[in-house]
Every structure is written in structure tokens, then in C-alpha cells.
């Protein structure tokens, strides 16, 4: 049991990091704080996927040794890290930047209309507006 906990300690860290991000998204009242929590959450998931491709022992990064001018040599795939999660998560990082940009644009629009970034105050002002309309 202790071996199970200590041997896979990095996975416990990913779970804690993901919980920190989820807590910030749910419990914080400021909209920018929620966005920071979303960033942490995304990074924790990307970290989990990249860590799947890691191998222990004497392995190279995914660049072929003697790749230039040594075509005859035999290449063992077991000697290299798995590059597939890296490439997929590269896309995920760029998508997360785009999501953050759109979210910040929406936050600026909300601030112009309600003059606050606190979620409770925004809901209060919105309810008052709805009552005034009725």
C-alpha cells in the first residue's frame, strides 16, 4: 500500500493540482480568479497526459540518434519516449490560450456593463434590472 502511494507520487500531485483548479472555479467569487482556476485545471490535465508517455530507464527524447546520413541503422521504438501524447497536448495548449482570450474579452464586456467583477454583485444588479422591467 505504501509502495503504491509513494511509487506513483506524481499522480497524487496531479490530482491535488486538479482539485485546486476545480475549487477555484467553484468557490471563488471573482471572475478573473475563476479563469485562473480554469488555467490550473487545464494544465493539470495536460500534465497527466504528458506523463503517460514517459518511460523509465535509458531512453532518448523522440529525436532519432544518428538520423542524418545513417539510414542503414536499425531503430528500436522501445529506446524512445512515446511522442504521441506530446503532440496531442501541444494542440491542447494552443486551444487553452484561445479559450483564455475569449473569456477575458467576455470579462471586459461584463465589467463595462455592470462595473464590477464580483459574481454576487452582478447577479444582484441583474435581478434589480429584471424587477424594474416587470
Amino acid at each position: 500500500m505504501l509502495d503504491f502511494i509513494i511509487g506513483k507520487f506524481n499522480f497524487w500531485f496531479y490530482v491535488i493540482l486538479m482539485a485546486v483548479g476545480l475549487f477555484a472555479m467553484l468557490a471563488k467569487r471573482n471572475l478573473v480568479k475563476k479563469l485562473i482556476g480554469m488555467n490550473i485545471f487545464q494544465t493539470a490535465i495536460i500534465l497527466f497526459y504528458v506523463s503517460i508517455g514517459v518511460k523509465k530507464g535509458n531512453v532518448h527524447v523522440p529525436i532519432i540518434v544518428g538520423g542524418h546520413g545513417h539510414e542503414g541503422e536499425l531503430i528500436q521504438a522501445a529506446d524512445y519516449l512515446n511522442p504521441l501524447p506530446h503532440v496531442l497536448m501541444l494542440t491542447a495548449i494552443v486551444v487553452s490560450i484561445a479559450t483564455t482570450g475569449v473569456a477575458l474579452a467576455i470579462i471586459i464586456m461584463i465589467y463595462r456593463r455592470y462595473n464590477t467583477l464580483n459574481e454576487d454583485e452582478i447577479i444582484e444588479i441583474r435581478q434589480k434590472q429584471l424587477e424594474a422591467e416587470v
Binding site: 478573473v32 495536460i46 531512453v59 501541444l90 494552443v94 490560450i97
Partner: peptide, 30 residues
């Protein structure tokens, strides 16, 4: 971890662009 391509994409895109976008939005708001 050996994911060199992910590392320099993070350093070039996520760290700089994300921080600049956030700082710009905070200057515009509060």
C-alpha cells in the same frame, strides 16, 4: 519529463501570451 516540444511551446505561448492577455484585461477592468 523529456517532452521538449511541449516545454518550448509552453514557454513561448502559454507563459508570455497568456500573461500579457491577463494583464491587458486587468488594466481594462480592476
Amino acid at each position: 519529463m523529456g517532452a521538449v516540444d511541449v516545454a518550448f511551446t509552453e514557454a513561448a505561448v502559454a507563459t508570455s501570451v497568456c500573461t500579457i492577455l491577463f494583464v491587458g484585461a486587468i488594466i481594462k477592468t480592476t
